[in-house]
Design a protein around this nucleic acid. Structure first.
Lengths: 129, 129
DNA sequence: CCATGTGTATTGTTGTATTGATACACATGG
DNA sequence: CCATGTGTATCAATACAACAATACACATGG
């Protein structure tokens, strides 16, 4: 994996370390990052995005404690072998649930018709692909 | 408006004062809270949810500086007359865009088919109604 | 008039989250 | 062997959120 593949927004309200954690978590769940794959070094990521190496380290450590990454001492961090490759869609969908709950609640408070919301989200889902 | 209509989760990562701000903001945008409506007093809200009155006051002050609320001295806070009643759907939809962008990006990283995501969100949108 | 109800300013304290600077232990590979 | 590359433990700085306890200015309504 390349450091430039990580999208980091230092100005966002979402803490940097968590941006990294969630992004990597998702890419492992979909097997875009297969077991054994090496992640970019903390200094590499830090340099590429002008952030502190410790911030990246913190993200990696959390992922390790989740069992998603493995420390290869002296070499770096790799996607753990135990990280089940490509979890079933239903499990991956569950990862989105909190976000979707929030969205649904907000939409309700705005009294927006479901059709409008679904149509717009449909557009956004196309765009990226 | 009643204090019990406010949904507050003290344990969430989202700060309490902002939970209040955004909730009220949406209910005004959809005209569930029409201009002139009185909001529950800070002490009322604070009592009902076991939070600090100043936290509620902070939320109200922010909404006032946005022009959405008006101070009626000695009486309380009311939805401002200038708060356009029921903004058009397109504007309300725009308020959801950041959240939807995030969701779309996450779904993409999880390599989830759009249909799955849309179907699940559809369910959630029904539930609340 | 005055008790009672508004919101708010003030000051201080507490707990926590985030990021950063530095130094360290360790493994690799020429 | 040792320069160079890993990750990270440690301590500090900062900012933020929430609470607590007052005190205040003001308007309402009996």
């Amino acid at each position: 994996m390349d450091a430039s593949q990580l999208t980091i927004n230092p100005g966002a309200s979402e803490p940097i370390y968590r941006q990294i954690v969630e992004q990597v978590r998702r890419m492992i769940a979909s097997a875009q990052l297969p077991p054994g794959d090496l992640l970019p070094s903390v200094r590499e990521v830090a340099g590429a995005h002008a952030i502190n190496p410790m911030t990246v380290s913190r993200a990696y450590s959390l992922l390790e404690s989740e069992g998603l990454l493995e420390r290869l001492r002296g070499t770096g961090m790799a996607v753990a072998a135990q990280a089940r490759r490509a979890r079933p869609e239903s499990e991956r969908l569950a990862l989105l649930d909190p976000r979707m709950q929030d969205l649904a609640r907000a939409a309700r408070e705005l009294e927006l018709p479901a059709s409008r919301v679904l149509r717009r989200l449909g557009q956004l889902l196309e765009d990226g692909t």
